[in-house]
């Protein structure tokens, strides 16, 4: 899995003139586009909007890009699947591993940016470790489900892509879930949408040195882990069915 991921990253880097620079350029350009729209044109009204946006958007891109690409990973490797009886979780995991390598660099960039903007490293940043781990579990669980669905019916690829756009607008990437005016509404959004909770938790840790809601984080971790294990078992049991679907 790791070998596949590193080979794909190297191949990706050699494809473009700017090579590995795209690892940071791409997320920065996304942030730039959102900054122009929501700060320059629409005047968000927050003094720290750029920091707020980067904390949310850079984490969101990790999730959305990994899930989107992993969802298509089994069908993208049908040549290999037709040749070797290999566990199908390998393909989404390799794509997720690519994202992990990229995100490590993106997090370093985010920390450097926070430091420059007056948010020096704080002891509370240690809370990032469980946050990142739970974030990873969420990505793996969603990717496994997506990869199975797309393998069985290709059209799910469109739904997953559309779902990411839906999540972009509903997870508080460029708006603050805590500034909705109605505390019940905030609670509801955080309870219904785990991604909104995660983005908010990253901001609480990085910008306000506040611990996340551990009980809520544990719920998301357990839910993701349970889903991940169940879908991985289903994928293992139906490996040959998935191969047939990928090849047909």
């Amino acid at each position: 899995m790791d070998t596949m991921a590193r080979m794909a990253l190297r191949a990706d880097a050699t494809r473009y003139f700017l090579g590995y620079l795209w690892w940071v350029l791409e997320p920065l350009l996304y942030v730039g586009v959102f900054y122009v729209v929501f700060e320059v044109i629409l005047h968000s009204g927050r003094a720290d909007f750029l920091v707020f946006l980067m904390c949310g958007k850079l984490v969101f891109i990790w999730f959305s890009k990994s899930v989107n690409q992993a969802a298509n990973s089994i069908t993208a490797n049908k040549g290999l699947i037709g040749r070797i009886n290999v566990t199908k979780t390998l393909f989404p995991l390799a794509v997720i591993q690519e994202g992990v390598y990229r995100q490590m660099v993106v997090f370093l960039l985010l920390f450097a940016f926070l430091y420059l903007k007056g948010y020096p490293p704080h002891a509370a940043w240690v809370y990032l470790v469980p946050l990142i781990l739970v974030n990873y579990l969420m990505i793996v669980a969603c990717s496994y489900i997506g990869a199975c669905l797309v393998c069985i019916v290709r059209d799910f690829s469109m739904f997953i892509s559309l779902s990411m756009t839906f999540l972009l607008f509903t997870s508080g990437v460029f708006w603050d879930v805590r500034a909705l005016g109605d505390p019940h509404k905030t609670e509801m959004v955080l309870a219904i949408n785990p991604l909104a909770f995660m983005l908010d938790a990253y901001r609480q840790v990085l910008m306000h040195a506040t611990a996340p809601d551990w009980a809520h984080l544990l719920q998301i971790a357990c839910g993701s882990l349970a889903l991940l294990v169940i879908v991985a078992l289903v994928m293992r049991r139906s490996s040959q069915y998935l191969a047939l679907r990928a090849l047909s």
């Binding site: 070998t3 596949m4 080979m7 191949a11 040549g79 290999l80 037709g82 040749r83 070797i84």
Partner: peptide
């Protein structure tokens, strides 16, 4: 039992070396 085919199964974006390495590891 291992199936040997040609043409299919290579990842077009990877080099011949990487593909050969990957194929050997997957087997």
């Amino acid at each position: 039992a291992s199936l040997l085919t040609i043409g299919l199964g290579f990842r077009p974006d990877l080099s011949g070396r990487d593909n050969a390495m990957l194929a050997a590891m997957l087997q």
